[in-house]
């Protein structure tokens, strides 16, 4: 299952959107206000849910605001962060440092 579909599934389960199906959620629908109709309290839950299910932390407003626009933007953010984590494992510099020790 790709990130967008998994995200939709998680949102339906965790944010009590049981009256919706994954197919009914458009990838580009606004998450807040019109669109999915989520509010500020859902935003808190969403930050928790993203960390719990995807291991990605939304640290602040700078990161959060563009990421939390739609399913597409949030999925892109998650994928980028997950790739970033993979890339971080030992850089040439850190390997060299370890070897020196």
């Amino acid at each position: 299952m790709d990130t967008k579909e998994k995200l939709k599934q998680v949102l339906i389960e965790e944010l009590n959107l049981e009256d919706m199906t994954q197919d009914e959620i458009d990838n580009d629908d606004a998450l807040f206000g019109e669109g999915l109709g989520l509010d500020s309290l859902d935003a808190v839950e969403l930050v928790v849910v993203v960390q719990k299910h995807f291991g990605v932390e939304i640290k602040d407003m700078e990161e959060g605001r563009p990421a939390l626009q739609s399913i597409s933007s949030l999925a892109a953010f998650i994928e980028e962060k997950q790739k970033g984590c993979t890339r971080k494992s030992p850089s040439p510099f850190s390997v060299a440092s370890l070897e020196r020790e």
Binding site: A43, V47, K59, D60, M61, G64
Partner: peptide, 15 residues
């Protein structure tokens, strides 16, 4: 402000 300031509050607390 945006989402009632909840993201700013979360960000501050996380730090």
């Amino acid at each position: 402000g945006y989402l009632g300031g909840t993201l700013e509050m979360l960000g501050a607390l996380k730090q």
